[in-house]
Design a protein around this nucleic acid. Structure first.
Lengths: 130, 130
DNA sequence: CTGAATCCGCCTTGATACTG
DNA sequence: CAGTATCAAGGCGGATTCAG
């Protein structure tokens, strides 16, 4: 598999930390999952219902990656029917602290961003007509 | 004209603020550009050199989107040869404040994440052999 | 110098169906 | 219940070329 050391960068992360982190959690679903798990431990299908519009496919993949990176821990109970619980690790929990600041910023400034988009869009329209 | 003419939701933003923001700046280059501009105002080719491994194509695209969203302002000087300067808007500057916290977190925890990846990877290797 | 336009490969994502 | 396998589609990013 990793017969050479060149693959290590690809497998174990870029040298730039923030780029690596953003690549991992900047996708469609990771943050939503982490926030859902911030409330409480959840099972697979509970997460599925909680998020609503995620497919089991993507939920499974994203959870696996979050687990690989150490944000989430996965516990399997030897029961019938099977039960698997997902919960935040300390790392995942600590990640949400700075992220909350960013979420707050997004909430406060999203309207401005949309306004800017609208304005730029209208200017382009005018230029197109002019 | 543009790469694609999308519908209003794509142009003016998703209803969820943080998802919208992350989709915009969570790409390969946006954050690097914002950080470069946090130091000082830069011209197009200065940015190109500063970042190093970005193509002019992507630099142009990303700058345009950052301008559209209001993070960056673009000033054209009527000179020969042409000169275009990019600088952060107040919005862009305010965005970097919470983002700095996240960058700091990434710097501090990146090693842990890589360690976790390595460990998970080795466990999978063992399971494959077992 | 500062981009825009075009073409193209890859990766992510989604839909669907199947397994234990 | 908790996933995995497979296939198809679209977006992202890169290389190259053209333009003002």
């Amino acid at each position: 598999m990793s017969d050479n050391d060149q693959n290590d960068i690809a497998e174990f992360g870029q040298p730039c930390p923030i780029r690596d982190v953003l690549n991992q959690i900047g996708d469609q679903w990771s943050l939503l999952i982490l926030e859902a798990l911030a409330e409480r431990t959840l099972r697979f299908n509970e997460l599925n219902r909680e998020i609503g519009d995620i497919s089991r496919q993507m939920l499974s993949r994203t959870l696996k990656r979050l687990e690989t990176d150490g944000y989430v821990s996965r516990t399997v109970y030897a029961e019938v029917p099977p039960r698997v619980e997902y919960t935040l690790t300390p790392l995942g929990r600590s990640f949400l602290e700075p992220m909350q600041k960013l979420i707050q910023w997004a909430d406060e400034n999203h309207a401005d961003i949309c306004r800017s988009r609208r304005r730029q869009h209208e200017q382009q329209q005018e230029q197109a007509r002019g």
